[in-house]
């Protein structure tokens, strides 16, 4: 095996793991490999996957965004409040996404211009925004939207088969793949994450790259927030708690390096699917939710350890 073939195999490791888990579950539970269940899994995965796509870019820069769950909650509450106040649902949706962009931009500014470590900057924002969503909603859920447009965003189907959130997920996957692989901006993300000093001395505006990436992460969180709100027909100010960890887990499972500069969006999609499939499979087999957590954690650790061992 040449080093390049070995590297390719290494990269496909998470994908092979996903196939193996699916195969195993198909044998153990007859309900797993049905069209209905597969679509169900994909729909459950879509929220985490959307956030994880944004998180992938942040982690490629060598950063981290802990505020994704709070950004999701603020966007969700904002959209709900606007609709309740009688604004057009399309406008409310757009406002939520713009709010996500603004919140993400603040993260980016604090990190790039304020030179605050991403962990600290987004930890602060996580708390500020969680508080904001509670203040806005007065701490109680907002429910009951009568817009068909809005309920389709998260609850609708294409061809009566594919859930709309899954379409969102696949579309965003394609977009992020294209951006990272084919655009100048994508190259600048890898260069900045790999060696920010060398990138800056090569004329890359590394501050702008950072701000843009955190902004995108905010947009993706808001998008996930809108879809979640639509599906539940309710905006919860406490929604999204702990989502940052699921997103980070998906990114890392997919083989993206926390040190920055190395990784790919396909890995993140696979990572998110792997987590979703495990959840679903363990549910189908009737494993208690306490044990499910243990098993998920062990799988994540094993995957990363295997990845390490393979790189040596």
């Amino acid at each position: 095996m040449t080093p390049q073939q070995k590297a390719t195999l290494q990269k496909l490791g998470p994908f092979i793991a996903l196939l193996a888990v699916c195969l195993g579950l198909a044998f153990m539970s007859p309900d797993f490999l049905t069209v209905g269940n597969v679509m169900n899994v994909m729909r459950q995965v879509s929220i985490n996957a959307l956030i994880a796509f944004g998180m992938t870019l942040v982690i490629l820069l060598g950063g981290i965004d802990l505020s994704v769950g709070s950004m999701l909650a603020v966007s969700s509450v904002l959209a709900a409040m606007l609709m309740k106040a009688g604004y057009d649902p399309v406008l409310a949706t757009l406002a939520a996404v713009v709010a996500g962009a603004l919140m993400g931009a603040v993260n980016g500014l604090v990190v790039a211009k304020g030179k605050v470590a991403p962990f600290i900057a987004t930890l602060g924002m996580m708390t500020v925004l969680r508080g904001t969503s509670l203040v806005l909603s007065n701490g109680s859920p907002i429910t009951g939207f009568s817009s068909e447009f809005f309920s389709t965003l998260g609850g609708g189907y294409v061809f009566d088969l594919i859930p709309i959130p899954v379409v969102w997920m696949l579309a965003m996957f394609a977009l992020f793949w294209f951006v990272l692989k084919k655009t100048v901006f994508g190259r600048h993300v890898y260069a900045t994450g790999g060696n920010a000093e060398a990138a800056r001395l090569s004329g890359v505006k590394t501050d702008r790259v950072q701000i843009a990436v955190y902004t995108l992460c905010g947009v993706m969180s808001a998008m996930a927030g809108v879809i979640l709100t639509s599906r539940l027909n309710s905006a919860q100010p406490t929604a999204g708690v702990g989502y940052e960890l699921d997103a980070i887990a998906a990114v890392v499972l997919g083989g993206t390096s926390l040190a920055g500069g190395r990784g790919w969006i396909f890995g993140t999609l696979v990572g998110a699917l792997l987590i979703g499939v495990l959840n679903n499979g363990l549910n189908l087999m009737g494993v208690s939710s306490f044990y499910q957590q243990v098993i998920k954690g062990v799988v994540i650790l094993l995957a990363v350890l295997l990845d390490r061992a393979g790189k040596k």
Binding site: R187, Y190, A191, N195, E197, A198, G261, R262
Partner: peptide, 13 residues
């Protein structure tokens, strides 16, 4: 190494 190249990227990049 620290200022000239992004070591994790390819020759082309």
């Amino acid at each position: 190494k620290s200022q000239g190249l992004v070591l994790g990227l390819s020759v082309r990049e």
